[in-house]
């Protein structure tokens, strides 16, 4: 079970499991306990999954948040997969979910989640980070706070530095 770091740097373990996409011809098998299923399967079986507080979804990096849209708030957890930490599409997915579709619940980074990207993730709206198990979760807090301020507006602030300077 991976360590999950919160935006404030605290470490917890929880029992949300990520359900991989079933192979062709196989159907989705839900495990015991809360789980995250591929977002397109949740959308396809919406009438079946709607209203369950133990089922969330995960986006792969090529999937489009537009397809979920404002229905995101029906979900307790939305996760975004980083197949490789250098695949930056997940940052845009996160910002769109938060800023365009006003998603309020937990937004979790999963996959190749390393320490040095945590602050970028936080700034884009992620508030839970399933750190890759070989990395030291105790360093999470430092890495979430390398920088004490930022030049740009993002999900975390409406005040780019040029607006703070002007005030």
């Amino acid at each position: 079970m991976p360590n999950v770091i919160s935006a404030d740097g605290t470490i917890r373990q929880d029992n949300w499991t990520v359900v991989a996409r079933p192979e062709d011809g196989e159907s989705l098998a839900l495990p015991n306990g809360p789980c995250l299923i591929p977002v397109d399967l949740w959308l396809a079986g919406h009438e079946h999954f709607a209203g369950r507080d133990d089922i969330g979804v995960w986006f792969d990096s090529h999937q489009e948040p537009e397809h979920l849209g404002e229905r995101a708030n029906e979900l307790p957890v939305v996760a975004v997969n980083f197949p490789k930490f250098s695949d930056g599409r997940g940052y845009s997915i996160a910002r769109l979910l938060r800023e365009r579709y006003a998603y309020r619940n937990e937004l979790r980074a999963i996959g190749d989640v390393l320490l040095d990207q945590l602050q970028f993730m936080k700034r884009c709206g992620f508030d839970a980070y399933a750190l890759r198990p070989d990395k030291d979760a105790a360093k999470g807090q430092d890495c979430l706070n390398f920088f004490s301020q930022s030049y740009q507006a993002a999900t975390d602030t409406d005040l780019p530095l040029f607006r703070r300077r002007a005030s």
Binding site: F85, S86, D87, G88, Y91, S92, R95, Q117, Q119, F120, M121, R123, C124, F147, S150, Y151, Q152, A154, P160, L161, F162
Partner: peptide, 15 residues
């Protein structure tokens, strides 16, 4: 202005 906006931009560090 572009330099500051692009510096450590959280969304565009892994293009």
């Amino acid at each position: 202005i572009i330099r500051q906006w692009s510096t450590f931009h959280p969304e565009f560090a892994f293009l």
